[in-house]
Write a protein that binds this DNA or RNA. Structure first.
Lengths: 165, 165
DNA sequence: ATGTCTGCAAAGATTTTGCAGCTGA
DNA sequence: TCAGCTGCAAAATCTTTGCAGACAT
């Protein structure tokens, strides 16, 4: 899988007359080393552990490149900084559900939704390119049983909850 | 309609022990004076024409208030600065389609999508609070007839197109 | 009276950019 | 070779915040 990412990057680089630099390889590797979403800063930190000389500016520039190349996608789960999702290569049509109790993000695919979006788009006189669906929801277990399995996991992972709306 | 907005704001203000200041009234009036999306800066400019003394900081603070009160919603059509949508009061479940040819944003509602989102969410073990669907699409007319009615309108309005992906 | 708001200016957070030197093709 | 890349630091953009005085209730 990582091999295919590098291959696609190389393809893009060749096709556009760009250079295959050590920094770009390092950054791509770091970006796809987990399936977690990440911010520019988080990626910079990951990269710094492997190649301490890489600059923040290059991370930002490479992120732009990877988005252009279609390897990464910016997603909006509400709020800055920009979050990047490395999972669109494997699941090009997935969507996001955010639990507002615990901040946990669930990725899911649904062919029905896909198809409906497509129909709606055509009815409006457009040709769909892509769509982003973000669902905000509460955990049913928390409501009925008083505890949210995700909430516990989230606390353990040390991530901060999103700003309260 | 504007009356109902003020009423809802007053309700929120009373309920939270806040103050009904001249600035807040001006800002809310400006925000709902059109059904167009706007940024903090654009709203600040609108407000400045009416009450030149109002500060940017107060606009930002009031925007936060209005989002909290459920009168406005932040939407993501790709890219900063944050865009606000005043149309959720009238059409609480509408979604957005962005034409990547011309940048035009089309708002639409679809009960089927609503319902499907709801089903998917419950299947995943959550209770839906709200959802945001953003469709990127190309104009079918531009493709088949070589011209996009929206594109012309967009150029006339002087708005900039979104950053190319 | 008093706790909230406001404007101002400064700070903060995130991202972009100019430039001089370096590097891959 | 030489166009593209990089790191650095400065700049740009957008938003938040501390504070002292003003204001709504």
């Amino acid at each position: 899988m990582d091999a295919s990412v590098q291959a696609r990057l190389d393809e893009f680089i060749r096709h556009h007359g760009l250079r295959r630099t050590a920094q770009r390889v390092t950054i791509v590797t770091a970006a796809f080393s987990k399936d977690e979403h990440f911010t520019a800063e988080e990626l910079f930190e990951r990269v710094s552990k492997v190649a301490a000389n890489t600059s923040r500016a290059t991370v930002y520039r490479t992120l732009g490149l990877l988005v252009e190349a279609g390897l990464l996608r910016e997603i909006d789960l509400g709020g800055n900084p920009t979050t990047y999702d490395p999972n669109f290569l494997n699941r090009p049509t997935h969507n996001h559900l955010v639990c507002i109790d615990c901040g946990r993000v669930v990725e899911f695919e649904d062919a029905h939704i896909e198809m409906l979006n497509e129909c709606v788009t055509r009815r409006l006189g457009f040709r769909p390119i892509r769509q982003a669906l973000m669902i905000e929801a509460t955990c049913e277990q928390l409501r009925t049983k008083g505890r949210c399995p995700n909430l516990i996991a989230t606390r353990l992972s040390g991530k901060r909850l999103r700003k309260k709306r």
